[in-house]
Measured scan of single mutants.
Amino acid sequence: DHIPWITAVLPTVIICVMVFCLILWKW
């Protein structure tokens, strides 16, 4: 059976995008 890697990667991607947007917003 396949491991849904997207389910494991998606939260990390969302957190990175939120942090990236927060850094851009504070500049």
Rank of each mutant, 00 (worst) to 15 (best):
L22D: 11
V17S: 10
V19Q: 03
P4H: 05
C16H: 14
H2E: 02
I6G: 05
V19N: 01
V13I: 02
K26E: 05
M18Y: 00
I6Q: 13
L10Y: 00
C21R: 12
F20P: 11
L24R: 12
W27K: 11
W5D: 15
I23K: 12
A8G: 02
L22C: 15
M18G: 10
T12C: 00
V9E: 03
M18E: 12
I23R: 08
P4Y: 05
T7R: 00
C16T: 01
W5M: 09
T12Y: 14
C21Y: 10
I14F: 07
L22S: 01
I3Q: 07
P4R: 09
V9D: 01
C21T: 11
P11Y: 10
K26L: 13
I14N: 03
I3F: 03
V19P: 08
P4T: 03
V19D: 03
W27S: 09
T12L: 13
L22G: 06
T7A: 08
P11V: 11
W5T: 09
V13D: 02
H2I: 15
C21S: 06
W25T: 09
P4L: 04
V17Q: 07
L10Q: 15
P11S: 10
T7S: 03
K26I: 08
A8I: 10
I15S: 11
P4N: 12
W27M: 03
V19A: 13
C16R: 08
W5K: 15
V9L: 08
F20K: 14
H2P: 10
I3M: 11
T7I: 08
V9A: 09
T12S: 04
I6P: 11
C21K: 12
L24N: 14
V17F: 07
P4V: 09
W25M: 14
W25R: 09
W27N: 09
I15K: 03
L22P: 09
T12G: 05
D1K: 01
L10D: 07
V19M: 06
V13S: 00
A8D: 03
V13H: 06
M18L: 07
W27T: 14
A8Q: 00
V17R: 08
A8L: 11
P4Q: 03
W25A: 13
P4D: 13
V13R: 06
F20L: 05
H2V: 08
I14E: 12
L10V: 05
V19I: 01
V17D: 08
W27G: 12
H2D: 02
M18S: 02
W27E: 14
P4I: 04
I6H: 10
V13K: 02
V13Q: 07
I3N: 02
L24F: 12
I15T: 12
D1G: 02
M18P: 07
V13Y: 03
A8F: 14
L24Q: 07
I23Q: 15
K26S: 11
V9R: 01
W25K: 12
P4A: 05
W25S: 07
I6S: 07
W27C: 05
H2Y: 05
P11W: 15
I14D: 11
T7Y: 09
I15M: 06
V13M: 05
I3T: 12
V17K: 13
V17Y: 14
W5P: 10
A8H: 00
I23N: 09
V9G: 11
I15A: 12
C21I: 13
L22A: 00
I3C: 12
F20A: 15
L10P: 06
F20G: 15
T12I: 05
V19G: 06
I6K: 03
I23S: 09
D1C: 01
T12R: 06
P11L: 01
W5E: 03
F20C: 12
V19H: 15
T7N: 03
P11H: 07
D1N: 01
I14V: 04
L22M: 01
L24P: 06
I14K: 05
W25F: 08
I3E: 14
P4C: 14
I3Y: 14
F20T: 04
I3K: 09
L10T: 11
C16L: 05
D1W: 00
L24G: 15
V17L: 06
T12F: 07
D1H: 02
C16F: 07
W27D: 15
L10F: 03
V19Y: 14
P11R: 05
W27F: 09
A8T: 00
V9Q: 02
W5H: 04
I23Y: 14
H2N: 03
T7F: 14
L24V: 09
C21Q: 09
C16V: 15
D1S: 02
V17I: 11
M18V: 02
P4F: 10
A8N: 00
C16D: 10
A8R: 08
I15N: 10
W5A: 09
L10E: 13
L22F: 13
K26P: 14
P11K: 09
M18A: 10
D1T: 02
W5S: 03
W27I: 10
D1Y: 01
L22N: 01
I3R: 11
C21L: 03
I6M: 01
V17C: 14
I23G: 14
L24H: 14
W25G: 10
I6D: 02
K26Y: 13
V13C: 01
I14H: 15
V19L: 08
H2C: 13
L24E: 07
I14R: 06
P4K: 01
L24M: 14
H2W: 15
H2F: 10
